[in-house]
């Protein structure tokens, strides 16, 4: 590999569509979510840059490692989660433009998505707090809840696109949509789309699916003992996760609308991300109250998984 190639890869990893892009758009979406929510509740709301300010301010605060905590794991957990998210950002193409591509993309994404959650769980667990103990238990159950519908949605997309051949590649899914139209406009995929819209808030952990962090009852659960830079990274992880999930949604269901210009594609994608953020997170957040953990589990394994399964069956019979 020559030097320009190496620099190009480094550019992809560190700037676009990797680190910088994911962080900036993630923080933007988080700010947008807060602003829109405030407007819907007739509040003025913080400026759009507030999540960035919060992040920078937390970086300057002192980091307290509680006596009961295992220091290495406690400090490493947020960084590992963040790393996994950045790697994930590289696997999700900006429509036609991607860093890596392979046959197993969907499964890799599914598994990489679990790493930030596991990092949160292990980090919270290592802090030794009983509140964190309850929090991680709920986080894990939340994870089990949304994993079923997510898996079914991904398999549905794979079947729809691949037909009678195995197709797990996100790149192939996008190019298939460029030829055959966006999956969102195929009637059989509508239930899967709805299911995916409901999976996103649980994956990101916004109300009413934020049982794991539940500020009012268990004081942010896994994050209770965190302070300073590790807390900042965890907050950043949530923001980046918003971007990752909405971008995944955009690629899975609106993959076909690429223009050929990367910059324009990026703008369109961010617009879709913002729309999805509004519908799947802000709107639901504004009109509902937090669920109990057993209700959350039941909801995902019946209603959401049912929607996804409906789509799978429709696709399987050839619609």
């Amino acid at each position: 590999m020559d030097i320009t190639g190496a620099l190009y890869i480094l550019f992809k990893i560190l700037i676009f569509p990797g680190l910088l892009f994911a962080v900036v758009i993630g923080l933007f979406l988080a700010g947008l979510d807060r602003k829109l929510l405030a407007r819907m509740q007739k509040r003025v709301g913080p400026p759009l840059r507030q999540p960035l300010f919060d992040f920078l301010k937390l970086l300057g605060k002192e980091t307290i490692v509680p006596h009961a905590a295992n220091k290495t794991v406690y400090l490493a957990a947020p960084v590992v989660g963040f790393t996994a998210l950045i790697v994930l950002a590289l696997f999700i193409p900006v429509f036609g433009y991607s860093t890596f591509s392979g046959n197993g993309d969907l499964i890799v994404i599914l598994y990489l998505l679990t790493i930030p959650a596991v990092a949160l769980i292990v980090g919270g667990s290592s802090s030794g707090s009983p509140y964190a103990g309850i929090g991680i238990s709920r986080e894990m159950v939340t994870m089990m809840s949304y994993e079923l519908p997510l898996v079914v949605v991904l398999l549905t997309v794979a079947r729809k696109v691949g037909g009678s051949a195995l197709c797990f590649s996100l790149g192939d899914i996008v190019s298939w949509q460029a030829e055959n139209g966006c999956l969102a406009f195929h009637p059989a995929m509508i239930p899967a789309l709805l299911a995916m819209l409901l999976v996103i808030p649980a994956e990101v952990g916004t109300q009413p699916f934020d049982v794991a962090e539940a500020e009012t009852e268990i004081c942010e659960g896994p994050l209770i003992e965190y302070s300073g830079a590790p807390l900042a990274v965890f907050k950043l992880n949530t923001a980046v996760k918003m971007f990752i999930m909405t971008a995944l949604f955009a690629n899975l269901f609106f993959g076909g609308i690429e223009t050929g210009y990367v910059a324009l594609d990026a703008v369109i994608m961010v617009a879709i991300c913002a729309l999805v953020t509004f519908f799947s997170m802000t709107l639901i957040h504004a009109v509902t109250a937090r669920l109990k953990i057993e209700h959350l589990f039941k909801f995902y394994w019946t209603v959401v998984a049912g929607l996804a399964a409906l789509s799978l069956i429709l696709v399987w019979v050839g619609l």
Binding site: K61, E62, V65, P66, Y131, C219
Partner: peptide, 30 residues
């Protein structure tokens, strides 16, 4: 990159503090 980011943030106020459980600052919140 992430380590660097954390290390640079380690200014006068952002340092990592440890202590024993007797000190309320480092005790677990109950």
């Amino acid at each position: 990159a992430a380590c660097l980011c954390i290390l640079t943030s380690k200014g006068s106020r952002g340092e990592i503090l440890e202590g024993d459980g007797e000190d309320g600052k480092y005790a677990t919140f109950f």
